[in-house]
Design a protein around this nucleic acid. Sequence first.
DNA 1: CCGTCACGGGAAAGCGCTCCCTCGTGCGGT
DNA 2: ACCGCACGAGGGAGCGCTTTCCCGTGACGG
Lengths: 334, 334
Amino acid sequence: MAMAKPSRARRITIADVARAADASVSTVSRVLNGIGTVDPALAERVRLAIEELGYRPSAAAQGLARGRSGTIGVLVPDLANPHFSDLVKVFSATVRDLGARVLVMDSDEDPAVERELAEDLVRYADGLLLCAPRMPRADLAALVARGLPLLVANRQEPGLALHSVCIDVHAGLLAVCGHLAQLGHRKVAYLAGPEGSWANRERLRALSGAQAFGLEVTVLACGSLTDDGYAAGPAVLGTDATAVIAYNDFVALGLLSRLAEAGVSVPGDLSLTGFDEIDLARYSSPPLTTVAVPRSELGRAAGEALARLMAGEDDMESRTLPVELRVRESTGTA
Amino acid sequence: MAMAKPSRARRITIADVARAADASVSTVSRVLNGIGTVDPALAERVRLAIEELGYRPSAAAQGLARGRSGTIGVLVPDLANPHFSDLVKVFSATVRDLGARVLVMDSDEDPAVERELAEDLVRYADGLLLCAPRMPRADLAALVARGLPLLVANRQEPGLALHSVCIDVHAGLLAVCGHLAQLGHRKVAYLAGPEGSWANRERLRALSGAQAFGLEVTVLACGSLTDDGYAAGPAVLGTDATAVIAYNDFVALGLLSRLAEAGVSVPGDLSLTGFDEIDLARYSSPPLTTVAVPRSELGRAAGEALARLMAGEDDMESRTLPVELRVRESTGTA
DNA sequence: CCGTCACGGGAAAGCGCTCCCTCGTGCGGT
DNA sequence: ACCGCACGAGGGAGCGCTTTCCCGTGACGG
């Protein structure tokens, strides 16, 4: 008796269900999509058949037929950075309530890759969340021109009609400056983040405003990693600053470690501030004065904003979320 | 003159390209897929048309026609945990070289959600990477039965035919024990991680083996977060242990902070070890003795393993990746 | 010079779903 | 008793690709 090879068990389709439930494909589809015009008994039969067969609708077929995939693309520069993984986490949870899934791509900060990935995401997704602080404006414009719902996080590009949700970096750093000025500091060093990134530009902008507080700022090239902060130790000690504003908490913690090694007391000899408030900030010794950014809020706001964009509401204003200065023990009087 | 409303600019399809390039749809498809049997001149014309029209093939249509989506599903318990975000990052980069994209879902450690998400991923993906340390065995079995390439990370389930890549947690903790024993410690406290998780079980298993080193272990319930470690301070001080083995680096750092507050010297009064080596471990004071796990290696191994599974190689053995003890200043003689 | 092939290229059949349109039925109104 | 209507249910045309099958052409050998 010849028996078909159990090669690759054919996928169970909606037609199989229809047959099993003795209903039409249309009806099964209705049941699947919760359209109420189906006789309860029939619907129940269909549900049973679905259960029995272990049927799951093919996402590809649904996507093709519906004209949308139920997928949102997210592009981040570095998923290993808690700032972004947190964002993705909350964003993903938020849009999930909308019935959407998230396709994440990590550009590794490489602009060329970024372009390519964004282009790829467009093919898959119904909407895009872009965290691309350094993507060339032209690429951004090209993406906008594609016409699909697009939202950028933490970036503003005047003149480009794109929606965004941002952290109020400017206000945050201003608060830091105010705090330091109040403590009597006059000369401060700023450990700069990645050159050209929006976040760094915003900080610099705030810093230039800080002269109003009587602060004299020395900008030192640094980076965004703990290692960068650690490496910046000597440079910092080479200045006559009495306080250091680190690009973020990682940098601050790295520097803190180097300072401890060098026997420099914080805040006795030097005050130090971070930014972004990572969990560990309050567990360092001394606990770090930093700026708490509403990470979850950002993810949620992004999710909601994109939802509205995808629903066709195009008249939406960009949101800027407030931050909060967290004064702890790493800052003291000059 | 009646003009069609520029409603929602119809998608550009392969047919448009064919028309523009004066070729057949088949040919355009061939060019797209790099099938060599096309006259170079024609191919060039097609490429030009594609460029001109800004055509991008619809992922849904391709997926439906090809019978596979080019997407791999990844389920993690917590994307905010660097352990998993790192894994996803590397994994995603690895499979990208295979032409696959990654759909990430975060179960938030909720078993019910986990089931649902896994079920959902199946509809979208050609393969699955599961990080589900506590998913009920039955759910796992159900997933295996679905027949699609499935790989689990950091978990082994004897009797279930599933492939896995793991970190050698057992060996890692054994190394920690050996190190402490060598320093003369006899009584140690273990700050336990999430109950029921594979990683915690493995540690406990190693710990029971540690009696061979003459170690007497007190297990204290704790958790996996910095806060948990901080909170465990009093409990730790309530024991007569001379060394503490923390579930992971976060816990260790949290405890370290609490100990510093309490004026307990590390390693003078108490030795302390972490696990997983996060970046900050070497920047704490004192720098943390911990176990370095090959996070990137894990992601890469997972990517490669899943690639092979998806290519049909079913005869694959599970891999266990070696770890490395990093001795730093948080451990000293008893 | 014609038969044979190899090969470039086109037509068309799906892939598994959604959704519009149509059809049949049973009901109420006049 | 008849017409119309509402509503439940089925038929079938796509959605945008891939891929098989087949045809036409030109090169080559006998």
